[in-house]
Amino acid sequence: MLRPNGATERRFRGRILGAGTTSGVRIVVGMWDRSPFGSFTDVFLELADGSSVLLAPDEIVAAYVSGTYRFDTVSVVDVRARRTARGLELDAGPLQATIDVGGISPLGRVLRIVPKPIARDPRWLALIDPVARLVSPGSGTAGSAGNGRREYYGVTGAHDVTAVSGTWAGEPLGTLAPLDPPVAFGFASMPRVPQVVDVETTIREPAV
């Protein structure tokens, strides 16, 4: 979408899952039903030593995402996310994980108060960003991204993540833990309590 000032606006609608593990690996999974690049899943990780990894399904997604967020390593791998009765089965190169998802979280109940068209509006998201950062330290709804881009997270629903198991590079992930410390790929992290959220991400790129 081209805005009147010449800036480009790209929208991604789907779900983001964030969870920590007792091994120290923190996982953020983006499952995008609608995007400028079609439907895809990508994975952000922060490892126990603090290094960050992007697992992307193709070179185009890898280039765009790594131009928006910060990573130490970018890998193009076959990323497969399969919904199950209990949650999600994830197979992404060196990462294999089974993630259980429970009922609507306390955050999800609060989000129901705001009508979805308002909750996705960048003007609203810029207004409430200070409140979001106060309520959930490390998180946010509006901020700066790479290459002069501006990003907005419009969250409309949330469910608890209740369990995680699997391996990273052949080593056990351990069990579920808070997403703590907050991940630092961009201007904001997911909440500390492991959750999967329904979201529309809007990225505005400067005019060229």
Rank of each mutant, 00 (worst) to 15 (best):
D72C: 10
P36V: 02
G24A: 00
V77Q: 05
A145I: 10
L54G: 01
L176H: 07
G20V: 09
S165I: 07
V183Y: 07
T98I: 13
T162M: 09
V135E: 03
A169D: 11
V164P: 01
T156K: 09
G18I: 00
F185C: 01
V25H: 02
I99G: 04
W124C: 13
D100T: 11
L107Q: 10
A7E: 13
R149Y: 11
L17E: 02
V79D: 03
A92P: 08
A145H: 12
V155C: 06
D121F: 13
V101T: 14
I203L: 11
T156Y: 13
R3P: 01
F12M: 05
M1P: 01
Q195P: 03
L45W: 00
G93F: 13
Q96A: 14
G103R: 14
N147Q: 14
V65G: 05
G87W: 08
T84C: 09
V65W: 10
R15K: 13
Y69D: 06
A158H: 02
T175A: 12
V77E: 10
E151W: 11
A169V: 03
T167S: 12
T202A: 02
G146K: 08
T141D: 06
V199W: 01
D49L: 08
R34L: 12
E89D: 12
V208D: 15
E59I: 06
P4C: 00
N147S: 15
V61H: 09
P117R: 06
L176A: 09
V135N: 06
P94C: 06
E200N: 01
D180E: 15
P137Q: 13
F40I: 05
V131K: 09
G170P: 14
L95F: 04
A97D: 10
P182L: 13
I128C: 03
R123T: 06
I113P: 04
V197N: 03
G186K: 09
E89V: 11
V131G: 09
A48C: 10
R150G: 02
A19E: 00
G102T: 04
G24F: 00
T8A: 08
A62P: 10
G138N: 13
E9W: 01
E205L: 15
T141K: 06
V79A: 12
G18F: 03
L45M: 01
Y152N: 01
V61Y: 05
L45I: 00
G38F: 14
V161P: 03
E89N: 14
A81Y: 13
G170E: 08
S52I: 01
S52Y: 01
D129H: 09
P94I: 05
A177N: 04
E151H: 13
A142Q: 00
R149W: 09
V65F: 06
A63L: 15
V135H: 04
D100Q: 10
A19Y: 00
P4D: 00
A145E: 11
G174F: 07
